[in-house]
Design a protein around this nucleic acid. Structure first.
Length: 484
DNA sequence: AAAAAAT
């Protein structure tokens, strides 16, 4: 209801102006921040005042700090060194849609609260529940959770939410998309009625407004990002390819451009695993993240990407939203998302915090409609380009010729680099091919799935992927053009 | 059509 669009238009606020707790200011400046982003400038004072807030902001606008800082500020009076669990009831609850996001918010909270005796617990599925129970038993002022595991704790009576005076729903639109509404309702029912509620969402759809009406009380509305806008500092381009060229096109892009790091989005979990395997086979330092991986694998993949150890992260939409990889220069959409809004989120992983970024999309005839839908949504025409993929990489004939050499796969990369030495710049993308040790049962399952996929590809009359069968293509081998 | 989330 409050129009804030012209508030703070010209004023740049420094963090010291908000009256935040000195310990927080120390942590903020230790993180190298001095000036608040627009959403922070608007949200921090409102949250400190105890108001409910409904915030629309693209991720990468400093949204997380916009609520974690004032939240911690308000929790400060409760900070205590007491070891009595009774002295540490849960006073604030942050809910996020994916485990990675919950973890990421927790990272941010922990960074800002490092020096104060506030206790923070992170609660999500896919990991051992016993450790979480123990932390909760000891007591903690702030809990960051995904809804499913939180309900698990609620049922097991290992958490008590009766003292929660602040609720944060992060990425609320995503939570609705994922069907969390019933879970949210169950959780919110357990919270005191008189509390502060904060809701953050990429957009304010009708559904979100409805949610806000039922969970928030006369919220201050903050809208710093035009809806569905893509950052101006992200250069977009789309290349038409045929389906069987996609993999070769990715390799071509990785090798011809001087990209330090890139997230590659695909639409399926199997597709992510497959592409990753092929990239690794090509000597590229790639890892994948998707919902069929164990939580440990997901955490590890994300960590090694964030640390810069991995050059390419192949992801499903589990990573489309909110993930913050500092200074990521490029995102490649190998498949266009079914939902045009997801395109906006995916490419929002780059060009964050004012940096410039590049968003490359590959699209087939089949996906042209999707690209048009995306353009309608973002109200921008995505420039089309042309890729000059080396012919050898796309050759089917070559694939069958060369398939005998499969036994020697990876031979080329057998030499190993010394353990943890950082790779030289020129080798940044490349690392030796090391088949990983796998759970035989899972591996059989995976192979079955892959076989299904391959059969599907065959029946849908798509040419087999050259590289999938042929290993690393030799250059300058001419071949018949595929005719599609 | 896909993906995500408790086990």
């Amino acid at each position: 209801m409050t129009d804030t669009s012209n508030a703070n238009a010209e004023s740049v606020k420094s963090f010291s102006e908000f009256g935040l707790h000195p310990d927080l200011l120390t942590a903020i400046s230790a993180s190298g921040y001095t000036v608040a982003t627009p959403i922070q400038a608007q949200a921090i004072p409102a949250i400190i005042d105890g108001r409910d807030v409904m915030g629309a902001a693209q991720t990468g606008t400093g949204k997380t700090a916009a609520f974690t800082l004032p939240l911690l500020h308000r929790l400060m009076p409760y900070a205590s060194n007491s070891t009595s669990p009774a002295r540490h009831p849960v006073r604030a609850l942050i809910l996020a849609p994916t485990r990675e996001l919950a973890d990421q918010v927790a990272d941010s909270v922990k960074r800002y609260s490092e020096s104060c005796p506030l206790r923070v617990a992170v609660v999500f599925g896919g990991v051992d529940i016993a450790a979480q129970k123990e932390e909760l038993r000891k007591g903690c002022e702030l809990v960051i959770a995904t809804p499913g595991r939180l309900l698990d704790h609620i049922e097991q009576k290992t958490i008590n939410l009766s003292q929660v005076n602040t609720l944060v729903l992060d990425e609320a639109d995503r939570m609705l998309d994922m069907g969390f509404l019933p879970d949210l309702e169950r959780i919110v029912k357990l919270l005191p009625k008189s509390r502060q509620s904060l809701l953050f969402s990429a957009t304010f759809s009708g559904e979100i407004r409805k949610l806000a009406r039922s969970f928030l009380k006369s919220p201050i509305e903050i809208n710093v990002a035009p809806q569905n806008a893509t950052a101006e500092n992200v250069t977009q381009i789309a290349y038409p390819v045929s389906n069987h060229q996609k993999q070769a096109a990715v390799l071509h892009l990785l090798k011809s451009r001087n990209l330090s790091q890139v997230i590659i989005f695909v639409n399926t979990k199997i597709g992510a695993s497959r592409l990753t395997r092929e990239l690794v086979k090509e000597g590229i330092k790639a890892e994948s993240i998707h919902g069929d991986k164990s939580q440990l694998e997901r955490i590890k993949a994300l960590e090694s990407f964030k640390s810069g150890e991995t050059a390419v992260l192949v992801a499903t939409d589990v990573a489309a939203r909110g993930l913050d990889v500092a200074g990521l220069p490029c995102v490649i959409n190998v498949d266009l998302p079914f939902n045009p809004e997801d395109y906006v989120h995916r490419i929002g992983r780059t060009g964050r915090a004012g940096a410039s970024g590049e968003a490359i999309a590959l699209y087939t005839d089949h996906e042209e409609k999707l690209l048009e839908d995306i353009e309608k949504l973002i109200k921008v025409k995505v420039p089309r380009g042309a890729l000059n993929i080396p012919e050898a990489s796309q050759s089917r004939a070559h694939a069958s010729n060369d398939s005998r050499s499969r036994g020697g796969k990876g031979e080329r990369f057998k030499r190993t680099f010394p353990g943890s030495r950082p790779a030289p710049i020129d080798d940044f993308f490349f690392r030796p091919y090391e088949p990983s040790v796998k759970d035989p049962q899972k591996e059989a399952q995976r192979q079955q799935q892959e076989q299904k996929w391959i059969e599907h590809q065959a029946t849908s009359k798509q040419p087999q992927l050259a590289i999938l069968l042929g290993g690393r293509p030799k250059k300058n081998i001419k071949s018949a053009e595929s005719n599609d």
